[in-house]
Design a binder for these strands. Structure first.
Lengths: 145, 145
DNA sequence: TGGATTTAAATTGTACACAATTTAATTTTA
DNA sequence: TAAAATTAAATTGTGTACAATTTAAATCCA
């Protein structure tokens, strides 16, 4: 098998599928005035109320070079506040505003609407997760902080 | 099951894995002075000699807004030539230079080196491909040209 | 056949993504 | 405890992504 043949690459389907799914989110996230990475941050904040930039970055596998401007945009939209920690001034805590908290209601249907848009069954979701997640978490520690 | 919980999202693992794999390519592609999307273009050209921007875009699911500047960078590195078609002046054909052709030899070990870096077995590759590809090609037609 | 439509790239503008460096605060340790 | 090392964010610079618009060429068709 010729290794350099495009069709033999594993990574292209993952790369393409990732972008394709993001594009399916667009109509729903557009209603919320969120991008997909911004939505991921909001999901985490709805669950945890407050997280610092480092923890957000570890969870999302994104560095401060990506997160800092993204969080500034969420702040400009008045969905979050960026508050420097009193105990450790290096740390910036991200907190939901009332508006940010309220947005959760409007986002409630997003996962179901997305699944519908993808035309994907629960079984298929599970198959993909099962195939991908072990590799993801085996590779994750390789990322630099 | 609470739909909005971060851990219940299917899409994050795909998004994260895609970036993680790209980061594993980095040391190998860095030696070739290529980014991952540039490498995908080169793979297609090594296989097909010449492709126009539209066909490249359909295959990689990228639009001209992404491809035009990327191809200009490959041209600046003297790996490709951008030649406007005589038969249809709207079309730009992308051709390998001698340097671009020669790069294939240097890239020959990349797939094996990547697989080694990921620590992934052939079985696992197949499982992921099998899980992902049907969804990818079911969704693909939804993309706009 | 000539104006209307379509098509292929390019352009413009916004938002990631990430390497590399910088800044400022905290922790280590000699 | 004061200099060295580490850490958390921010900054800088390059390169995607992609929506929306523009430009120019080809095709349609009244």
């Amino acid at each position: 098998m010729k290794q350099l043949k495009f069709s033999n690459q594993l990574c292209f389907p993952i790369y393409a599928l990732s972008r394709l799914i993001t594009s399916h989110y667009q109509p729903f996230l557009g209603e919320l005035d969120l991008t997909y990475p911004q939505y991921l941050v909001m999901l985490l904040l709805w669950e945890h109320q407050s997280m610092n930039v480092k923890t957000l970055g570890e969870t999302l596998m994104l560095d401060s070079g990506t997160l800092t401007p993204l969080l500034k945009r969420l702040e400009a939209k008045k969905l979050i506040k960026r508050v420097r920690s009193k105990e450790d001034e290096r740390v910036v805590n991200i907190q939901l505003t009332a508006q940010g908290t309220a947005l959760e209601q409007q986002a409630a249907e997003t996962p179901l609407r997305l699944a519908d848009s993808l035309g994907i069954t629960a079984t298929e979701v599970q198959e993909i997760k099962d195939a991908i997640t072990p590799l993801l978490y085996r590779l994750k520690p390789a990322l630099k902080g």
